[in-house]
């Protein structure tokens, strides 16, 4: 179910489009923002908002890989495994995750903190290996940087290594 806060955003979302159904992805994304996944109740609610049947929402939700239809860990690590990242070590990064957290793609740590997914290209091909963690990108990962990320997430729930507005090469960053 949408929270009261999320519900407040809905009218503005619907207003952007001449046809209600267009609000489908914005609403699915909004649903996912709440708990990290989209529940059946969410889909039914969206169906109602858009004058559709739940199956018509479901078919859209299953098409898009970012939408999780099952609960996932608090921190969703999505490692890009496409060729460009693979050339610079994404498979190794996946091994690091296993080594540090004991999970392979598709798995969640027992404490429900981390879920690992191997995903396709995230448009960071020049700054691999990289991963997306919830809303943030972490790029040019080394074992050390990766460990920092995990440690920071564990302790504070966030990490400064997250990429800001993107520029690469960045004259203001020296490696």
């Amino acid at each position: 179910m949408f929270s009261a806060e999320a519900k407040k955003k809905i009218p503005e979302i619907l207003k952007r489009y001449p046809i209600k159904a267009s609000a489908m992805l914005p609403l699915l994304n909004l649903a996912q923002e709440e708990e990290g996944w989209v529940s059946e109740e969410h889909m039914c609610e969206i169906a109602k908002l858009l004058d559709l049947t739940p199956p018509k929402v479901y078919e859209v939700a299953t098409f898009y890989t970012m939408l999780n239809l099952k609960p996932i860990g608090k921190f969703h690590l999505q490692v890009c495994k496409s060729l460009m990242c693979a050339l610079v070590g994404s498979d190794t990064l996946i091994q690091w995750v296993d080594q540090e957290l004991g999970i392979t793609p598709g798995e969640t740590t027992e404490d429900g903190m981390f879920t690992l997914s191997a995903v396709e290209c995230l448009a960071s091909c020049g700054t691999g290996p990289m991963m997306q963690m919830n809303d943030d990108y972490f790029e040019r990962l080394t074992l050390e940087r990766f460990r920092t990320v995990i440690a920071d997430l564990r302790s504070t729930g966030e990490c400064e290594l997250a990429t800001g507005p993107f520029r690469w090469p960045d004259p203001e960053v020296t490696t």
Binding site: N68, P105, V119
Partner: peptide, 8 residues
């Protein structure tokens, strides 16, 4: 590295 993705 299978295609085990976020597609859950």
């Amino acid at each position: 590295v299978g295609t085990g993705t976020s597609h859950q």
